[in-house]
Design a binder for these strands. Structure first.
Lengths: 197, 197
DNA sequence: GTCTATAATACGATAGAC
DNA sequence: GTCTATCGTATTATAGAC
């Protein structure tokens, strides 16, 4: 196929840029940074993306796709909503070191873009919405039909709060402690005790 | 005094820059933006601050001072720790509109700077620490001596989570709902019920 | 499709007259 | 202490040869 190598080059650009945007922030990452990280020459990158904003949009699409398939995988791998919610809570941990150093990829991106261009803002917010819909499904299946969305938003909020505090204090111990606490809340909910969450 | 007008000019620069950094983000705010917002000519700003970083440091100091005096004021105005904690929770509300549009000033600044220069990172983290120390005092006075700091961090985390979700979804209703929930938690704690927080 | 050279501009910062 | 003119650089983006 003639487009094979082309697709791979495009993908290399998106993945490198995505990593840089996460580690350095979007506005603090220059086009030259992307050129250096990919090894792809300047002009070639502009062949695939007209502007720096376009690269960011592509990076967000890339994240959306990865999250989508991750959530699908969880839905397939775990049969009960409690197991699935446990897997979600564990996500805080399997990105643990990066989270301590750079914060939540989704949260920090939204915090940065929430101040600028509206199109980017709405695109980045989709990352949150993917998780929220999936969580809503799990809570509904748990029996909290009417309040499922509210509970989903609350769990997201707790996750974001933990991420922010872990990042600000560079403290993995805080992450572990609060993650376990969140897990306990989920367990309580599963037992039908909704007095706390 | 010869320094009077000088001080006022310096203050104008700091306040304008601080507002811009909050509304647009630091890296997305140019030196020219600051010039335009203040009305102070370029060279004059460089008389007060050697670099753009210096302006940010001054803005953080300005925030630190304001928070310090706000917390002192709360300590003086309210006699019981519960009243003071209620006042803290209400903070989410009296910055409500700005919070919906731009997120938490402290959180978004730390999210952005946490990825860059270490000196700025540590300076910005002091904003969190001021609140945390004050909250720790309140929880200690409430009778949770051993766990006071842990509870302080948790309340901060909840506040940050609420702020992030409110900002991402531009949803003041979410803010109100979760703020009231946080208030109820504080009330439970005050009654000696620590099963939830 | 690939790559280099370079344009055009915005940036942070400085020099120096007043 | 105030202000203007401008420097040098880093930025995003393009032109055009291969």
């Amino acid at each position: 196929m003639a487009t094979r190598k082309s697709e791979r080059t495009r993908q290399r650009i998106v993945e490198s840029a995505n990593r840089l945007f996460y580690h350095q922030g979007y506005h603090n990452t220059s086009f030259t940074d992307v050129v250096r990280a990919t090894g792809v020459p300047r002009g070639n990158i502009y062949y695939y993306f007209k502007t720096k904003d376009d690269i960011l949009h592509a990076a967000i699409d890339y994240r959306l796709e990865r999250i989508r398939s991750m959530l699908e995988g969880w839905t397939d791998s775990y049969r009960t909503p409690v197991e699935r919610l446990h897997r979600f809570v564990a996500l805080l941990d399997d990105t643990g070191e990066a989270l301590t150093q750079y914060g939540c990829p989704m949260g920090s991106l939204n915090a940065e873009l929430g101040k600028a261009d509206l199109a980017l803002q709405e695109h980045a917010a989709q990352l949150f919405k993917l998780f929220e819909e999936w969580l809503t499904d799990q809570f509904a299946e748990l029996g909290y039909a009417g309040r499922a969305h509210e509970l989903a938003l609350r769990v997201m909020a707790v996750g974001q709060g933990i991420s922010m505090m872990t990042h600000v204090h560079h403290d993995p111990a805080l992450l572990q402690r609060e993650r376990q606490r969140l897990k306990r809340w989920v367990d309580q909910l599963a037992e039908g005790d909704d007095s706390c969450l």
